[in-house]
Design a protein around this nucleic acid. Structure first.
Lengths: 246, 246
DNA sequence: ATGACGTTTCGGAAACGGCCGAAATGTCGC
DNA sequence: GCGACATTTCGGCCGTTTCCGAAACGTCAT
């Protein structure tokens, strides 16, 4: 660690600020291909073992261990030891939101087909930290906006009065959410280039879908599988037609 | 550039994804102290010349030039040539939002006094891309929330019906904003650890304050100065008491 | 034209950081 | 206790990156 090493220079705006150095430290953590792959893998909100993540990063366990330690130290990851495994996950929703923002910037200026997820299953339905993304996520968001249950814009979103009643009917609880009115956040889907629902609302919708067995996680994947029951219910409840996967 | 270099390995989750590599490329751009200082300087939304930015980064103009070229290439910056100067600015609001997210993560886990802006003027009032931050920004947000003009939560924010009337009265136009209802976005202030207003609403408020001469930019600084008129009007309109700077 | 200034390009030197092999630590199952 | 497994630590190799000096390019002023 070089101790700030300020070089004075005439006519400068502002010398090396310590907040910028912290920014650099955090950004550098995500700025390595191996670490970026680990972070992208953890973006679905689940916890993975060090070994699994070393595979995802394409490096040996020793190397991954160093990366994981560094990211944990930097506050990006949190670790839970369980037996001889160590489960790593994103340290906080703020980290997920930061990665979201970086993915949005990374996807700009590149043709979608060169950037987005390559597999059809990924494009169809996947999780993004704690909510749905892909065509499933975008379709649900579109349907809710069309029905007037939520309002989405670049800057944010809201659940309308009608929306609150709708979600109460469909068994999605938004009333227990602290901070007064329930809100939702738009998350720019980098494969669809469209908004889907993040925030508390997105998380509760996804949780509810898992709970009712409408969708299932695929093993060792970030993609999710819509069950036959789910296809039926998505059509009935949201008016969303889910294509058959594969 | 190494051409993907996949190493196959048994039991792995998912090999090196190209989206993660793009993520790494963007993150690496911000992951260097000199570049992070440049980005932090540009976070106030203005454009600076290459020379000014080299001073802010604490490196020679040659070095800064390379950094600026790289960030422009990566889509983080845009450049406008004007005479013998080249003005660099953040390429898009998405980039500002990404940096916002990184600053929030960078500020977590560090005591505020070790992280935040050091100068009193910075803590008091500064710009954050296109809106106010610091105590000024937080106070305005608090006041609007207390008056019931806006609702803020972790996930987003809204302008209430009463708020729309209030802003119309105070000469802040929100009706010409596309996308139906005006929305606002909470921006976590890393010095105050509190939310202030970003998004269209935050930008319009700041623009209006500059326009009416309530605040002025300080030369060569990211801080803003509240004029005597501004102190009076902030008290009258928002009920916000602005401390005398210095 | 000439000189001053802002900016970029090119060169090489030095430092940093990632990677793996080998080995140590800790945990589970028997 | 003893192997098998998951994970971490240590040491050294090697590629990458950053940095600056020197020089070239473009623009403005005289």
């Amino acid at each position: 660690m070089s101790p700030l090493a300020l070089r004075t220079r005439a006519g400068q705006i502002r010398r090396m600020s310590s907040t910028a150095n912290q920014l650099a430290a955090v950004a550098a953590c995500a700025g390595d291909p191996a670490r970026a792959n680990i972070l992208a893998t953890l973006m679905d909100g689940r916890a993975f073992t060090a070994g699994e993540l070393s595979g995802a990063a394409g490096v040996t366990p020793q190397t991954a261990s160093g990366h994981l330690a560094r990211m944990t130290e930097a506050g990006l990851l949190s670790v839970a030891r369980q037996g001889r495994h160590r489960y790593y996950r994103l340290a906080s929703p703020h980290v997920a939101q930061m990665l979201e923002g970086m993915l949005v910037v990374a996807s700009e200026g590149l043709p979608p087909e060169k950037f987005g997820p390559r597999t059809a299953a990924m494009r169809l339905a996947r999780t993004c930290y704690d909510h749905f993304a892909g065509r499933l996520g975008v379709s649900i968001a579109d349907s809710l906006v069309a029905a007037g249950h939520v309002v989405l814009s670049d800057d944010g979103g809201t659940v309308t009065a009608g929306g609150r009643a709708f979600f109460a009917r469909t068994g999605i609880d938004l009333e227990t959410h602290r901070g007064g009115r329930p809100a939702c956040r738009p998350c720019l889907d980098w494969s669809e280039r469209r908004y889907h629902l993040a925030g508390v609302l997105g998380a509760r919708i996804a949780a509810s879908c898992f709970e009712h067995g409408w969708v299932r996680r695929r093993p060792r994947e970030r993609t999710v599988d819509v069950t036959p029951l789910g296809r039926k219910r998505f059509r009935e409840v949201y008016g969303v037609q889910i294509e058959e996967a594969r």
